[in-house]
């Protein structure tokens, strides 16, 4: 039981009470697991991550975090909120949302400062983390001066510096070049090998097998359409096609047009 970090039971959530975003969701997440959430646009992946981060709460059903039911009122309690925020970190889909400070340095240290870390501790972590991510040169720049890849790395740094046990990532590789994508995959695997729980929402099927052991497929009806090991799910072409995760790809071999389903499980 201690190993269970999140437990969602019959969870429903809708925006403004009328636009359903999650429907009958049942998920159990254990400590140290690597999970991917895949699905078409608007299938509720980001909403799920926001709920796991205690930013929104179910309209119906129960969410438990670290063995305790998570309710909005609990996060108004300073002690509980501080512990929860130290334990769970979310990297938002849009780095422009996450980087709201005038400089990269201030953005990265924002989290630990709010959570009461000491100046020495913050400076040490900042130095190590920025060296590891290769972003030391960016510290005094404004986020608006950075490329999308740099912004995404900085956004990840803003969360990693808190040292959360659970790392939630919302499409961390969207729009990135292959090399930056590779760096992010390596980073996630490093975090996972140090015992962190990694939950990633993504469209990039080619990274799923590397960053996850378990995959949840979300359907356009906002329900979980399937879940299983990453190899099982990625082999199920019919399931992936049904949820807009593969497409028919046509290309030419000399004079013959060749057509086949295309999964984006590899770079090409």
């Amino acid at each position: 039981m201690d190993d269970i970090i999140f437990e969602l039971k019959d969870v429903n959530f809708s925006y403004l009470g009328k636009y359903p975003a999650l429907w009958d969701i049942n998920i159990t997440i254990k400590r140290g697991e690597k999970i991917s959430v895949i699905g078409a646009n608007g299938s509720g992946k980001s909403t799920l991550l926001h709920m796991l981060d205690g930013l929104i709460f179910p309209d119906k059903g129960i969410i438990r975090a670290f063995g305790k039911e998570l309710r909005e009122g609990d996060l108004n309690d300073a002690g509980f909120s501080r512990n929860f925020r130290k334990s769970v970190g979310l990297v938002f889909q849009n780095p422009d949302i996450q980087l709201f400070c005038p400089t990269v340095r201030e953005d990265i240290i924002f989290g630990p400062l709010q959570l009461g870390a000491s100046k020495i501790e913050i400076e040490k972590c900042l130095e190590e983390l920025t060296a590891m991510l290769g972003i030391t040169d960016l510290l005094d720049r404004s986020p608006h001066q950075l490329s999308i890849g740099e912004r995404r790395k900085v956004a990840i740094a803003t969360t990693l510096i808190i040292g959360p046990d659970v790392l939630l990532l919302d499409e961390p590789t969207a729009g990135l070049d292959p090399l930056t994508t590779r760096h992010i995959i390596d980073l996630l695997n490093l975090a996972s090998s140090s015992g962190k729980t990694i939950i990633t929402s993504t469209h990039d099927l080619h990274i799923v097998e590397e960053i996850s052991d378990t995959v949840y497929v979300f359907g356009s009806d906002k329900k979980i359409a399937a879940f299983g090991s990453s190899s099982e799910i990625l082999k199920d072409e019919r399931l992936l096609m049904e949820h807009n995760l593969v497409h028919i790809h046509a290309h030419r071999h000399k004079d013959i047009v060749h057509v086949h389903p295309h999964q984006h499980t590899d770079h090409h």
Binding site: K86, I97, Q98, F110, T159
Partner: peptide, 22 residues
């Protein structure tokens, strides 16, 4: 929209009403 989203991003990193700075 951005206002709401940025506030969520601040909450997510421990903001509790009075920002701390270095």
């Amino acid at each position: 929209q951005l206002n709401e989203e940025v506030y969520k991003a601040m909450l997510s990193r421990g903001y509790a009403g009075e920002p701390a700075v270095l």
